[in-house]
């Protein structure tokens, strides 16, 4: 039985954090001394109640907010020391899926999906082909020239996933991507994210929908009050799936 779940081999680490703290100007402590390591190619869930720090942690990962103290390294970049240019470069290697999808309603599906490609400097003659390919992956190739307002909620989220994966980023961050969706649509969205993970992207997904974990297993990092309460790694081998348990933080 091959144990691939244990956090080991920092050389293959996508995200490392050590005693990470985040305190907002209002005084609220969003993250309090979090220590975590997420390896490349993993599918990791961030779970916990509202206010546990899931979204704040994701914001730290894509540089939306700078940690107050501690160490955070994302794809080898020290986030506390990173400059504006480095943060921009990092973001080009990250695909982000939001709960409210954040599509541009004044732009077509094509323009929404092609935006990350344009940011990276893709030539215009390649954009349509690439957009068609990623939309085909999420089953929306025929909606290339539609506007988001003409799509259902599930379709809009699928377009958001297509946008996030259009540049084949090594890291995908998803903040409650199934929060506004029904169970069936949510499972489809999870299927796409799982497939992206199988294709090599590291996926970190914040969610409080624990039902998804049963059908779409992955590493679980349970947060509570800004700290890591529990860490479960998915261990596979020999055709069986087991979970290795670790609890290196105070009980919730």
């Amino acid at each position: 039985m091959a144990d691939k779940g244990h956090a080991s081999g920092y050389r293959s680490s996508m995200i490392q954090m050590n005693r990470l703290m985040l305190r907002y100007p209002t005084g609220k402590i969003a993250l309090s001394g979090m220590t975590m390591n997420i390896e490349k190619g993993r599918f990791a869930y961030l779970t916990g109640e509202s206010g546990a720090g899931k979204s704040s942690l994701l914001r730290c990962l894509y540089g939306g907010v700078q940690p107050s103290s501690g160490k955070l390294t994302v794809q080898g970049l020290d986030m506390r020391k990173a400059g504006q240019r480095q943060v921009r470069k990092l973001r080009r290697d990250i695909g982000i899926v939001f709960q409210d999808h954040r599509l541009l309603f004044s732009r077509t599906v094509f323009e929404n999906v092609a935006l990350p490609l344009r940011v990276q400097g893709w030539k215009p003659d390649r954009l349509v082909a690439r957009a068609e390919k990623v939309l085909e992956f999420v089953g929306l190739k025929d909606r290339l020239w539609s506007f988001p307002e003409a799509l259902s909620g599930g379709e809009q989220q699928r377009v958001a996933i297509a946008r996030a994966m259009s540049t084949k980023p090594p890291l995908i961050l998803a903040d409650e991507p199934t929060g506004n969706l029904d169970i069936g649509t949510a499972r489809h969205v999870m299927d796409y994210l799982m497939e992206l993970n199988r294709q090599g992207s590291t996926v970190i997904m914040a969610t409080h929908d624990l039902h998804l974990l049963d059908t779409h297993p992955g590493d679980i990092f349970r947060l509570h009050a800004g700290a890591l309460a529990e860490e479960l790694h998915l261990v596979t081998g020999g055709g069986q799936q087991t979970r290795g348990e670790e609890s290196d933080a105070p009980e919730a």
Binding site: S106, R107, T108, F110, E111, A114, P124, L127, V128, D142, R143, L144, W145, S146, F147, E149, A150
Partner: peptide, 23 residues
Amino acid sequence: MPRKPDHGMQERRMPRLPGGFSL
């Protein structure tokens, strides 16, 4: 790029610049 037919809905149509971008 020719538009695909609608799915029976009245979708908004906007003029496009070369490359497929909206004004």
